[in-house]
């Protein structure tokens, strides 16, 4: 009797077990499918394209060129300029996407009532303005002859500044516009994280004799470190990408290619000069670099970030 049961039991059990193992995958399938179709297939396609020469016309042939695209890219001044600018964008964005929001989140933590409402709307409005609208708005504001900003500077006794025309300044103007859009989001994230810090830690530190600044340095900042590192990583990975739309709308990479970056370069190669192979090669280079940066930062986060239980 038991022997029979033993023989039959496994098959009897196998079906439900199989079903319960398959179920999560069934739920995940749509997401996985979308990721596959929109992320991994294009990535593979791009990796393949980066070894070909092709002008994007469906009828024209793709010619295999080996590492030529990469070799050309790496020797081209365009690419190194774009790479350097990408770094400048990221470095320039960090104060706007991390430092200022951090300061704002901590300084406004005790705000209540009306003041809180006003401050919140002020800081979050840029976040919900459509990027193209924001770009046009800033173009008006920063216009070197009729713009409000230059008018203000003139009152203060400064000459007009070519915010979008001066090759030394244009990149920082775009950094500012990109960052201006980000401050709200970062502040939101940091304020939320700051609000979850248990008040008893702060009280314990106050009992220990810590000053206001010591409480921030020794308690708040360490407990905010996961969010700070997350925002830093997001800025490093996506910062230059976020500025693409403003480069495209406001400067087109100029003047004198001073505002271009790798994302704009890719787009420029791909859709303006129709050199798909170069564009793909630039994309793959960027992907590999950013993947390395991401891995490094994840490691760093694991090491540095402290999590409350």
């Amino acid at each position: 009797m038991t022997a029979i049961a033993e023989i039959f039991a496994p098959t009897g059990l196998a079906l439900p077990r199989l079903r319960s193992a398959a179920l999560p995958w069934a739920y995940l399938a749509p997401a996985l499918l979308i990721t596959l179709v929109w992320i991994y297939l294009p990535l593979i396609e791009a990796a393949k394209l980066s070894f070909y020469q092709w002008n994007m016309l469906p009828t024209s042939p793709q010619r295999f060129v080996g590492w030529d695209n990469y070799r050309n890219l790496l020797t081209l001044p365009d690419m190194s300029r774009a790479a350097l600018n990408t770094v400048l964008y990221i470095v320039g964005l960090l104060p706007l996407s991390v430092l200022i929001p951090l300061a704002v989140a901590i300084l406004t933590q005790d705000m209540t009532g009306r003041a809180r409402g006003i401050y919140r709307s002020l800081i979050f409005v840029p976040m919900i303005v459509a990027p193209v609208v924001a770009a046009i708005l800033w173009r008006w504001l920063l216009n070197d002859t009729h713009g409000l900003v230059n008018a203000g500077l003139e009152v203060l006794g400064f000459g007009p500044v070519g915010f979008l025309q001066d090759p030394d300044i244009a990149l920082w103007t775009l950094v500012w516009i990109t960052g201006w859009k980000l401050i709200g989001f970062s502040t939101l994230l940091l304020s939320a994280a700051n609000a979850t810090i248990a008040p008893s830690y702060i009280e314990a530190a106050r009992m220990d004799g810590a000053s206001r600044w010591q409480v921030i340095r020794d308690i708040r900042l360490p407990l905010l470190s996961p969010t700070i590192l997350l925002l830093t990583m997001m800025t490093a990975l996506f910062g230059a990408q976020w500025s693409f739309i403003y480069v495209n709308v406001l400067t087109g990479g100029g003047p004198l290619k001073s505002t271009t970056n790798v994302f704009f370069l890719m787009w420029d190669y791909g859709f303006k000069t129709l050199s798909a192979g170069w564009s793909a090669a630039a994309g793959i280079l960027t992907f590999v670099t950013l993947a390395a940066v991401a891995l490094l930062m994840l490691r760093l986060m694991k090491r540095l970030a402290v999590y409350d239980e």
């Binding site: 008893s200 314990a204 530190a205 106050r206 009992m207 220990d208 004799g209 407990l223 402290v306």
Partner: peptide, 20 residues
């Protein structure tokens, strides 16, 4: 007077040990 200057020490219900 600030808590840190009163010369009192407190043990909290949830201990409030600094997690980091």
């Amino acid at each position: 007077v600030e808590p840190g200057r009163r010369g009192c020490a407190m043990v909290f219900q949830n201990y409030a040990l600094y997690p980091h």
